[in-house]
Design a protein around this nucleic acid. Sequence first.
DNA 1: AGTGCATTCCTAATCCACAA
DNA 2: TTGTGGATTAGGAATGCACT
Length: 260
Amino acid sequence: MSSILRSIQLRNSIWSGFPVRFLKQQAGLSTVNLLDPRSCGKRHFTTEVQEHGKEVAEAATILIFDLETTGYFHKDHRIIEFALCDLSGGKNSTFQTLINPERTVPDHVERLNNIGTDLVCRPGIPRFSDVTPLLLAFVRSRQAPGKPILWVAHNAKNFDARFLAQEFDRCSASLPADWLFFDTLTLAKKMLKAEGKKRLTNLEALREHYGIHSHNDAHRAMRDVMILSQVFQKMTFDLKLTNEELINEAMKASEFSKSS
DNA sequence: AGTGCATTCCTAATCCACAA
DNA sequence: TTGTGGATTAGGAATGCACT
């Protein structure tokens, strides 16, 4: 495939707050023959989540993320959609892309999120190995000097972080050492335990608990990222968690390396 | 549909008080 | 001192829940 075609496909497939030209420069890739970013009608800019996270974000760059995959187990399945949102908000604060898993998407997964084999297993959809350098460039562009990246996901410990680490392994890459992972599912369970209450701790239950409105019922990565962004801020506010406590409770990227 | 974590439940072991 | 019964504790098994 020609580099020009590949660039166009990447631009059309990755919905990022940043122009792909910028990301490719950051990733050390050629920017020749890219179309004017302003001509790309599919790009999404998200600035909904802003001021709330600024205080927390001072100690680290906080990236809320979510994955859609072909199944549950990271060793047997692949990522089909990736979305993240920088909690500090502002322009260019989101990154979202479908990912070609190079395998079929089971029917029960397609019914859940409307992402089927036909949608992701086609030439225009980047593989994870294509996305990796752009993702790294995006993260670097959001990272404050000397501060870690705090990745936040619901069930990160057992699901999202493991899948991310597995995909990096498949690319013969490793997660950067200054990436930390924070699990909001663990936090939700601690919160309920402290309250002495019993209720469900899945993301939908937390969304309803906090009265967060969702415009879309489909189970998609960016939708869940936007919900989790609000849930995370409300939970950390309720629990009066400090920046240091969040970072101290986070898991290091090395905990999700090849052995996991 | 698979896996891992946290919680709950059950059983066995241990400890202590009391009576013979 | 010894035996018994109740209370407590520890550990393993089972269960529930979270994620797509």
